Simulated assay, not measured.
Amino acid sequence: MTLDMMLALLVFLFPLAYSPGPGNLFFAANGAQFGFRATIPATLGYHIATAVVTLLIGSGALAAQAISPELFQMLKLAGVIYMVWIASKLWRAGGTKSDLHAQPARFRDGVVLLVLNPKAYVIIAVMFSQFLTPVDAAMANAYSTALGRTGQLGVVAVITFVFTLNNFVAFSIWTLIGEGLARQFARDARARQLNRGFALLLGGVAIWMLLM
Rank of each mutant, 00 (worst) to 15 (best):
Met6His: 10
Leu10Ala: 09
Phe14Met: 01
Pro22Asn: 10
Ala29Pro: 05
Gly31His: 04
Gly35Met: 01
Phe36Met: 06
Pro41Ile: 14
Gly45Thr: 04
Tyr46Pro: 00
Tyr46Trp: 02
His47Tyr: 05
Ile48Ser: 09
Ala49Asn: 05
Ala51Arg: 07
Leu55Tyr: 13
Leu56Cys: 13
Ala66Lys: 13
Ala66Gly: 13
Tyr82Met: 13
Tyr82Ile: 07
Ser88Trp: 11
Arg92Val: 10
Ala93Thr: 01
Lys97Pro: 04
Ser98Arg: 12
Ser98Gly: 14
Ser98Met: 14
Asp99Ala: 09
Leu100Thr: 15
His101Ser: 15
Val111Cys: 04
Leu114Arg: 04
Asn117Ala: 00
Lys119Val: 08
Ala125Met: 08
Val126Glu: 08
Met127Leu: 14
Phe128Thr: 05
Gln130Thr: 12
Phe131Asp: 04
Ala137Met: 11
Ala137Thr: 03
Met139Gln: 11
Met139Leu: 15
Asn141Glu: 13
Asn141Ser: 15
Ala142Tyr: 05
Tyr143Cys: 03
Ser144Pro: 05
Val155Cys: 03
Val156Gln: 03
Val158Gly: 12
Ile159Asp: 01
Ile159Cys: 01
Phe161Gln: 07
Val162Gln: 05
Phe171Asp: 03
Trp174Leu: 00
Thr175Gln: 03
Leu176Ala: 01
Leu181Thr: 07
Leu181Asn: 09
Ala186Asn: 09
Gln193Thr: 14
Leu194Thr: 07
Trp208Gly: 12
